[in-house]
């Protein structure tokens, strides 16, 4: 099978040194291939490692066991061992990550926050602004907020700024960690459309959805993460 992401025997445990050295196994010798353009939904109860898996693929969490191979600019690379330089580049061009939480930078306008991924790819600023405005409009952010810092925005507005930022550029691999959680019906519909557009663009989408209805719209493969924890290590 042609793959774009290949997980080979990855494992992750957390040791809490200041809480009696408690050791928690969250990902247990897990292997799986993902094809270009496929859609997968991670399911399982909380604590079954869904978010951890996405963060390992994005390299926000270190992977100390196993390999996370991806195709980046046509070459096979291992995220688990890639140098920082390569990770910056992978996050710019190959892997996108959207959660429900925006990390707000004070004094940076909502519009600038949204277009940053395009600017990083050297898109001309006026064009990036145009795209940013369209995206903010689609997500129903009132125009009088575009040039303000998101620091003072409501939780729902910040969440939509983060979604706009996450979907403004297309990535061969997209990781979605409950992007629709706590959105109202109107905006949830917009997010589902954005996801479907990314699918049409050929992105491989790996997602976590709390909402069963959203899971069904996304369709594709369902991966039950609770099973991997039951295996012998």
């Amino acid at each position: 099978m042609d793959w774009i992401l290949k997980l080979v025997n990855i494992g992750k445990d957390f040791v809490f040194h200041h809480q009696q050295g408690t050791r928690l196994v969250v990902i247990n010798n897990f292997s799986m291939d993902f094809s270009p353009g496929e859609t997968a939904v991670l399911s399982g109860p909380s604590g079954s490692g869904k978010s951890t898996l996405l963060r390992m693929i994005y390299a926000s969490y270190k992977t100390e066991k196993g390999h996370i191979f991806i195709k980046h600019h046509g070459k096979q690379v291992d995220v688990a061992t890639a140098a920082p330089a390569l990770i910056y580049n992978i996050r710019q061009d190959t892997i996108g990550y959207v959660s429900q939480f925006l990390r707000v930078v004070p004094r940076v306008s909502a519009l600038d926050t949204v277009i940053e991924p395009l600017i990083a790819r050297n898109m001309e600023e006026n064009l990036a602004m145009e795209k940013g405005k369209q995206m903010l409009e689609r997500l129903n952010i009132p125009q009088n907020l575009w040039h303000l810092s998101a620091t003072t925005f409501s939780g729902g507005e910040q969440q939509r700024i983060n979604i706009a930022r996450g979907f403004i550029a297309s990535y061969p691999i997209m990781l979605l960690d409950e992007p629709t959680a706590s959105l109202d019906a109107k905006n949830r519909k917009v997010v589902m459309e954005l996801i479907q557009e990314a699918q049409l663009h050929g992105s491989c989408i790996i997602s976590i959805f709390h909402d069963k209805y959203d899971q069904q719209i996304i369709a594709g493969r369902t991966i039950d993460m609770s099973e991997q924890l039951l295996k012998e290590a």
Binding site: F14, V15, H17, H18, R55, A59, S60, Y61, K62
Partner: peptide, 13 residues
């Protein structure tokens, strides 16, 4: 490590 690795997944005591 990367800033998010150190702050979100610190390993050393």
């Amino acid at each position: 490590g990367l800033s998010d690795q150190i702050l979100d997944d610190p390993r050393k005591p």
